[in-house]
Design a protein around this nucleic acid. Structure first.
Length: 691
DNA sequence: GCTGGATCAAACAT
DNA sequence: CATGTTTGATCCAG
């Protein structure tokens, strides 16, 4: 173990392609087997060429060499990433207009939601009066209003205040259930939710950092970025699911999704109350004049709750003083009445659990745990001696495992891995203590030990001449840590790339972290990726993706995950290695997901986008044949949850940046990580056809 | 349309 | 760090 193995002896493609099954119906989109112990992609065109547009590529299966990429006519398979939904508009001009507006979420959602549901999904209007669920067609979508946005502001400082207009729209009173979404629609809504949450996070962090800039660091009360971001998005009608009151599952939201703020739940429409635990269609808006409950949050605020996972005894609301002590009897009104009525009509409720989580300084994280039926309702005397309403809820069967129990399980894995999972671990640290946190290797499905046979490479190996290029003495002199406007901040375009807790604010062509030539301490906020792992990772074996990577910790959106390491080869060197059949990575192929992260200018044109210096295209390859790190086992997805960001810190040669991986969304524990390797998307479909 | 009350927040002070 | 305090935003009922 741990010794170098000649590449001839390596079995890089141990699995026949037939066993590399590609999921075709998973709601998470296509996480496919693209890493280096699973089928190898052999590009036909020159590796250093610009990546060809994905719609023109398809993948064919070959006899002994697995797969190859070849060109085909562009019209073969439309790429959902670049092709606007075909059923949304008819004329070419409309298509173009829609495409250019693709990222304007509100319009997209309004049109896509109404029309897509009409075409693919069943929308049922829930009618309590008839005690039946009646399918009805979705009303014709109203004309898109083209708003004239606020006048452009050339001053970035003013950008935030410009966001807020005074237009408000309430929630809809139409009670609806969404079912039978096709794969494409699931993926569409998933991307929509993902983009919405990304905007929310970017805005939230922006508000906090702008406020900090104004008042100075650590002075006064911190701005409530969670509230402000939601307000801005509501004014811009960027909240999801406001035009329909959805009962049951929400399109684009999966069981196990984790949210960091209550307002985030409002923004995506999972739960519309800022503080209240029971969300309802209010009596005043219900056709029957009765309130109907749609979702609840169980968060530990009521002493009479009893939560055993699949079954819950949930206490109604009310009867508490301002400190949360029961001080009077509850009444059968509002949310309590709504839960009773939902039980009466057999309407299921979404359940969200609020959990304390160590990574979060205060407050809670919120996990969507799926749908529950209300079985029973009674009036009881609570622990404090006052009357409370109680509801017995039971989880509907056949749903994926609860996110909250996965989080509990991950917690036990972190502390006592061997007692939580006695068998299956091949090693409890494949990095052999080279990383600052151990990386588990786990396989409970076959006898493959392959990752054990490589030396672990914690830092990328650069060519010697990488350090020769103008790298002498260019650093800051901030002895007590970098501040706004310092030398290193200017190198990054005036702003640091990270917030104070190391969250990536905004993707850039390259980030200049402080390094050897800087006077600042290791704790400087401009040093993030160079410090290595912050989350405990695990390489695991799966039926779907061969080897994959997941985290035992909850990863916050924008957080650093790990570096993608290897031995950097120049173009000439790569030619030689390629002939050896070595496994090479071509960084210029990675899809540039960093450009999406934190970029508000696509949504808010008045938000002035700082201009970045152009950097030379990535013109190197990386050898991972013998030395590699955990990143090499991350699977490919065309709708990934991890992005690649170039970072420099130990040298200043723009030709050879570090490839650093950051989370594109909140990633729950034990959910597989994925990168967009930039390979053709269609081979997902092709492979499933071939198989 | 306005207003006030209720509400299983979130951040900070103690 | 558990508990209290402060500042909130939204929704709904009247």
């Amino acid at each position: 173990m741990g010794s170098l193995v000649p590449f001839q002896d390596l079995n890089l493609c141990p699995e026949p392609p037939q066993t590399a099954t590609i999921p075709t119906s998973s709601a998470t989109g296509a996480t496919t087997a693209f890493n280096f112990l699973t089928p190898k992609i052999e590009p036909k065109q020159e590796p250093f060429d610009e990546p060809t547009p994905t719609p023109t590529q398809t993948v064919h299966q070959q006899e002994n060499f697995l797969f190859s990429v070849s060109n085909s006519t562009p019209d073969s398979i439309p790429n959902p990433e670049t092709t606007p939904p075909s059923n949304v508009s008819s004329s070419a001009d409309d298509q173009n207009a829609l495409y250019s507006d693709y990222f304007r979420i509100s319009e997209l959602f309004r049109s896509a939601f109404a029309k897509r549901l009409q075409k693919y999904g069943d929308v049922e209007v829930v009618d309590p009066d008839s005690r039946a669920i009646v399918p009805v067609p979705v009303p014709e979508q109203s004309q898109l209003t083209s708003e004239t946005g606020p006048t452009e502001s050339s001053n970035p400082e003013r950008a935030l205040s410009v966001f807020v207009s005074r237009k408000k729209a309430g929630r809809s009173n139409e009670l609806v259930r969404v079912t039978n979404l096709g794969f494409e629609d699931q993926r569409h809504f998933r991307d929509l939710v993902r983009r919405t949450r990304m905007i929310y996070d970017a805005l939230r962090i922006l508000v906090i950092s702008e406020e900090e800039k104004r008042t100075g660091p650590g002075r006064g009360r911190r701005a409530r970025g969670d509230l402000k971001a939601a307000e801005v998005m509501r004014d811009r009608e960027l909240w999801l699911n406001r035009d329909k009151r959805i009962v049951g599952a929400l399109p684009g939201i999966e069981i196990g999704d984790v949210f960091f703020f209550r307002m985030e739940l409002c923004v995506v429409g999972l739960h519309g109350q800022v503080q209240a635990g029971i969300d309802t269609l209010p009596a005043s808006q219900s056709t029957s004049g009765e309130p109907i409950a749609t979702s609840i949050i169980i968060s530990g605020g009521y002493e009479d709750d009893e939560d055993s996972g699949d079954s819950i005894i949930y206490t109604g609301q009310g009867g508490q003083d301002k400190f949360g002590k029961q001080c009077m009897h509850q009444k059968l009104e509002g949310g309590n009445l709504a839960l009773e009525r939902s039980m009466h009509y057999g309407i299921e409720v979404r359940v969200i659990r609020g959990l304390k989580y160590e990574n979060k300084v205060s407050g809670k994280v919120y996990v969507y745990d799926g749908l529950y039926k209300i079985l029973d309702c009674w009036f009881d005397v609570g622990k404090s001696g006052f009357g409370v309403y109680k509801f017995r809820l039971s989880r509907i069967e056949g749903q994926p495992e609860m996110g909250s129990s996965i989080m509990r399980f991950a917690e036990s894995l972190r502390t006592r891995p061997l007692s939580a999972r006695p068998t299956g671990y091949l090693t409890l640290d494949i990095s052999m203590k080279k990383e600052r946190l151990p990386i588990f290797l786990y396989n409970d499905i076959d006898s493959d030990h392959d990752p054990m046979y490589y030396d672990y490479l914690v830092n990328t190996v650069f060519p010697l001449n990488a350090f020769g290029h103008g790298s002498n003495g260019t650093g800051c002199e901030c002895v007590s840590g970098c501040t706004e406007g310092c030398f290193c901040a200017m190198k990054n375009g005036g702003d640091f790339a990270y917030d104070c807790s190391g969250i990536l604010l905004r993707g850039k062509p390259v980030i200049f972290e402080c390094g050897n030539f800087c006077q600042c301490p290791p704790t400087c906020r401009n040093r993030v990726a160079q410090h290595g792992l912050r989350n405990r990772l695990e390489i695991f074996r799966s039926m779907e993706t061969g080897w994959g990577v997941r985290s035992l910790d909850l990863i916050q959106a924008g957080a650093f995950i790990c570096e993608y390491t290897g031995v950097v080869l120049t173009r000439d060197q790569a030619e030689v290695f390629k002939m050896n059949g070595d496994t090479l990575i071509y960084p210029n192929r990675f899809s540039e997901r960093w450009s999406e992260w934190g970029d508000l200018s696509r949504i808010f044109p008045e938000y002035v986008c700082p201009s970045y210096p152009s950097i030379p295209p990535l013109d190197f390859a990386m050898d991972v044949s013998r030395l590699r790190n955990v990143a090499c086992y991350i699977s490919h997805s065309s709708s990934p949850n991890v992005l690649v960001q170039c970072v420099l810190y130990d040298h200043n040669n723009l030709m050879f940046p570090h490839l650093m991986l950051f989370a594109m969304e909140s990633i729950p524990p034990l959910r597989e990580l994925s990168i967009d390797y930039g390979v053709a998307d269609e081979w997902t479909g092709k492979l499933s056809i071939c198989n």
